[in-house]
């Protein structure tokens, strides 16, 4: 029983982490309260549906099982460019005005939801998951680790590693961190802050799209998908503290494991309440979250 609970906790954490990772960039690093984050998840999920549809129509049946790999790329790419578009068309005018960006991105989120309803219809759509993700690893007669959950766990680790390498081991990542820590100074040193903003926002959105394509495996695919995850995503980022990858990992694992623990001990509704209370109490003690970035900037 303990093993399965631990696995469930980690699995839930990995889903939360994947959902929050993109937000930790757009909200955590860039300080944009991006309410349209959930809709990028939705776009990612719908892209799986679209890719599957195209494979069914145009590709040989033998290739069908590989559609999901393509779908991951499609989801990331589409969300990446839509994110870039959103940054160029709207968000760039709203930096340093968090309340305005909250309202504006919320409006964009609602427009995207309505657009999805118009394109794909109001009811949910279904995808067939590839056969290599069916079933699970049978450990004992009751303990089964579903392949989809293991896959999501692996996907999160890959995302985290790539993001870590990008942020801390490449020149582009270095300038990104510089801009986020001290925009004026970075600008003085010849970094094009506009370009960095654009790419950063696009990467955050792209990861959200990738997360959406993972959610398509285990949850509903419909226009309101984003609204189910947006609160959890913000909670993870706020609890973890903004600006560091370690923070968001801490936030996701804490909330995921606590949730599963209380849920198996009590019930699902009560567990959510208790976890909320714990998060609030924790933020009283450490208002800036678990890990807070030390900068030389004067703000706050």
């Amino acid at each position: 029983m303990w093993a399965i609970q631990l696995f469930n906790g980690l699995s839930y954490s990995s889903i939360l982490l994947l959902v929050a990772l993109g937000l930790s960039i757009t909200f955590g690093l860039m300080n944009v309260i991006n309410m349209a984050h959930g809709e990028f998840l939705m776009i990612g999920a719908y892209m799986v549906y679209v890719t599957q549809h195209l494979f069914q129509q145009y590709a040989p049946a033998a290739w069908f099982d590989s559609y999901y790999i393509f779908a991951l790329f499609v989801s990331f790419t589409v969300a990446f460019f839509l994110g870039m578009l959103l940054e160029m068309g709207l968000v760039k005018f709203l930096y340093r005005r968090p309340l305005d960006s909250l309202l504006a991105t919320w409006g964009v989120g609602m427009m995207l939801q309505q657009a999805a309803k118009m394109i794909f219809g109001a009811p949910n759509v279904a995808v067939t998951s590839p056969s290599w993700l069916e079933g699970g690893l049978q450990l004992t007669s009751v303990v089964v680790l579903p392949y989809k959950r293991l896959f999501i766990l692996a996907l999160v680790i890959v995302c985290l590693l790539s993001l870590y390498i990008y942020l801390y081991r490449t020149a582009a990542g270095r300038s990104m961190r510089a801009v986020m820590q001290n925009r004026d100074m970075a600008g003085c040193l010849g970094i094009s802050t506009r370009k960095v903003d654009r790419i950063t926002f696009a990467i955050g959105s792209g990861i959200a799209g990738l997360a959406g394509s993972a959610l398509a495996l285990i949850g509903p695919i419909g226009s309101s998908l984003g609204t189910y995850y947006i609160v959890d995503a913000f909670m993870v980022v706020v609890l973890g503290g903004v600006g560091k990858l370690a923070g968001v990992v801490f936030g996701a694992v804490t909330i995921g494991v606590l949730n599963v623990f209380f849920e198996s001990w009590l019930s699902a509704s009560i567990a959510k309440v208790i976890v909320f209370v714990i998060v609030i109490a924790f933020l009283q003690w450490r208002p800036r979250g678990f890990v807070s970035l030390k900068t030389r900037a004067l703000e706050s």
Partner: peptide, 10 residues
């Protein structure tokens, strides 16, 4: 709107 059922299933 709840979407995480692994504990309930356990």
């Amino acid at each position: 709107g709840h979407t995480e059922y692994s504990t309930v299933i356990a």
